[in-house]
């Protein structure tokens, strides 16, 4: 009995190991990504690439702090290239934080209205729909 079982079992084991090896081979496939080739063309340094890699979690945390779910934040970053993530990381903190500045300016509302009205009339801004711009 024991002996008759051994063959199919070992055969099964060999198959398992083979398919494992196959799966491993695929997972480890040492392919060079398009981004690496493209970046070597624009001569991005290794350092910049490492930085971008490190920036991804940081940018993700910032996006989450903006009220975006972790899964969505991850998805938004996933479709950006390394250089785009680096660019985002460099600017995301400096973006105008809507709210605080506006709140501080509410007291000066009338003054701002007048300033924007003048700049609208001059064609420097385009805030009020009722201002007619000559061509």
């Amino acid at each position: 009995m024991m002996k008759t079982m051994t063959k199919p079992v070992s055969f099964f084991l060999i198959l398992c190991l083979l398919s494992m090896g196959f799966a491993l081979g695929r997972a480890q496939a040492a392919m060079v990504g398009t981004e690496t080739v493209l970046n070597s063309k624009v001569q991005q340094t290794e350092r910049a690439r490492v930085n971008a890699f490190l920036e991804r979690p940081r940018v993700q945390a910032i996006l989450e702090a903006q009220g975006i779910s972790p899964a969505e934040a991850r998805a938004r970053i996933a479709c950006l290239s390394d250089s785009e993530v680096a660019g985002l990381a460099a600017t995301v903190d400096q973006l105008p934080a809507g709210g605080s500045a506006v709140g501080a300016l509410i007291g000066a509302g009338v003054l701002i209205f007048i300033v924007l009205l003048i700049t609208d009339l001059l064609g420097l801004t385009h805030v009020f729909p009722f201002v007619y711009h000559s061509r």
Binding site: Q66, I68, A75, R76, I77, C79, L80, L88, V92, G98
Partner: peptide
């Protein structure tokens, strides 16, 4: 909206627009 909007900023960042177009 779910792919581009940042609630705390009350607006959409440029990379979010870029990413949503790609998606």
């Amino acid at each position: 909206v779910p792919e581009v909007y940042s609630p705390a900023l009350k607006g959409s960042l440029q990379p979010a627009i870029v990413g949503a177009a790609r998606r």
